[in-house]
Amino acid sequence: MTWATWSSVFHWYRVVDWYDTAVHSVTPGTVAVTLQLLLARARLLPSPRDRTLRRSAVPLITTALGATVASLWEMYEWLATDVFGAHLRVGYEDTVADMAAGVAGSLAAGLILAWRSARASPRPSEDGDL
């Protein structure tokens, strides 16, 4: 999130065309993985290392969390632009592209988390530690 904030402060989004898409892809994915691990530690979600989970559960949960993060980010951009008058490069096409990048990045992050969790030592399902 710090990276995305400084990117906006220094107008890096305007310097390189693809930069906005890259940030909107990487940030929701990393935030989603972090949220998933924190929620698992709080025992609100199963641990990614839980062997009783289906293989698709970890990437699915990460993608859902990342889609939520991407949605909230786009709502923030709308609020900043339409309510507070910030000068952001937004519009329908930008919003849809940012959402798609966020979901794709979150899916990729979820697949990496699932792969890393499968390689880690097994833990019993009732163990909430990561």
Rank of each mutant, 00 (worst) to 15 (best):
Thr5Phe: 10
Ser7Asp: 11
Ser8Val: 05
Val9Ile: 12
Val9Leu: 11
Phe10Leu: 15
Trp12Pro: 00
Trp12Gly: 01
Trp12Thr: 03
Tyr13Met: 05
Arg14Lys: 15
Arg14Asp: 15
Arg14His: 15
Val16Ser: 12
Val16His: 09
Asp17Phe: 15
Trp18Gln: 13
Tyr19Lys: 08
Tyr19Val: 08
Asp20Arg: 08
Asp20Ile: 05
Asp20Ala: 12
His24Met: 08
His24Phe: 06
Ser25Pro: 07
Val26Gly: 09
Val26Gln: 09
Thr27Ala: 11
Thr27Asn: 10
Pro28Thr: 08
Pro28Met: 06
Gly29Gln: 11
Gly29His: 10
Thr30His: 04
Val31Met: 07
Val31Gly: 00
Ala32Gly: 09
Val33Ile: 05
Val33Gln: 01
Val33Arg: 01
Thr34Ile: 00
Thr34Trp: 02
Leu35Gln: 04
Leu35Thr: 06
Leu37Arg: 03
Leu38Gly: 07
Leu38Tyr: 02
Leu39Gln: 06
Leu39Val: 08
Ala40Tyr: 01
Arg41Leu: 11
Ala42Trp: 14
Arg43Leu: 07
Arg43Ser: 14
Arg43Asn: 14
Leu44Glu: 12
Leu44Asn: 06
Leu45Glu: 09
Pro46Val: 02
Pro46Cys: 01
Ser47Pro: 00
Pro48Met: 03
Arg49Thr: 00
Arg49Gln: 04
Arg51Leu: 02
Arg51Lys: 03
Arg51Thr: 03
Arg51Tyr: 00
Arg51Trp: 01
Leu53Asp: 01
Leu53Met: 04
Arg54Gln: 11
Arg54Ala: 14
Arg54Pro: 07
Arg55Pro: 04
Ser56Arg: 13
Ser56Pro: 04
Ser56Asp: 13
Ser56Gln: 14
Ala57Tyr: 13
Ala57Ser: 13
Val58Arg: 07
Pro59Met: 12
Leu60Arg: 13
Leu60Asp: 10
Leu60Ala: 15
Ile61Thr: 14
Ile61Gly: 08
Thr62Gly: 08
Thr62Glu: 05
Thr63Asn: 10
Thr63Ile: 14
Thr63Gly: 09
Leu65Arg: 07
Leu65Gly: 05
Leu65Phe: 11
Leu65His: 10
Leu65Trp: 10
Gly66Ser: 13
Gly66His: 10
Gly66Lys: 10
Gly66Cys: 13
Ala67His: 10
Ala67Ile: 09
Ala67Glu: 08
Thr68Phe: 13
Thr68Arg: 05
Thr68Asn: 11
Thr68Glu: 09
Thr68Leu: 15
Thr68Ser: 13
Val69Arg: 01
Ala70Arg: 02
Ala70Thr: 02
Ser71Phe: 11
Leu72Thr: 02
Leu72Ser: 04
Trp73Ile: 01
Trp73Asp: 02
Trp73Tyr: 10
Glu74His: 03
Glu74Leu: 08
Glu74Asp: 07
Met75Val: 11
Met75Glu: 08
Met75Asn: 04
Tyr76Met: 09
